[in-house]
Design a binder for these strands. Structure first.
Length: 118
DNA sequence: GCGGTGACGGTCG
DNA sequence: CCGACCGCCACCG
């Protein structure tokens, strides 16, 4: 993936995070930004994904907005929805994904300090 | 260099 | 629950 010499480390960090989203799960732009270390740069995540070349290994379709809606327009939205449905992600009648069911939970602890369950 | 824009999001009424 | 407002920050003309 060679977007150009201006590709910043910020974008690379964002792509690295998106690549960690497992199949059948989705994350919000803000969540990706936060995990990448830029908690208030949700918009930049959108820009970074927009800059991805076609056929990239980055699963850009697993990123939705914080409300569980697809932020793309027109046929791009349909493409994203199709890709997600192929992975088993369900959409409700309003074209929304229930993040409590399909939201990605990174660093899911199972051993060690499972003490403080928030 | 400046201002408008946007694959966003938290807050407020 | 929903719309209106802002804050954010890389891009682009």
């Amino acid at each position: 993936m060679h977007v150009g010499k201006t590709l910043s480390t910020t974008y690379l960090s964002i792509y690295a995070v998106v690549r960690r989203i497992p199949r059948g799960r989705v994350a919000s732009y803000g969540q990706v930004a936060a995990v990448a270390g830029f908690s208030n740069a949700a918009r930049q995540v959108g820009y970074a994904l927009h800059a991805l070349p076609a056929g990239s290994a980055v699963p850009w379709h697993r990123v939705l907005n914080a409300q569980g809606f697809i932020s793309l327009q027109d046929h791009h939205a349909l493409t994203q929805r199709m890709l997600l449905m192929q992975e088993g992600v369900a959409f409700d009648a309003r074209a929304r994904v229930d993040l409590s069911l399909f939201g990605w939970r990174p660093r899911q602890r199972t051993t060690a300090k499972r003490r403080s369950v928030r």
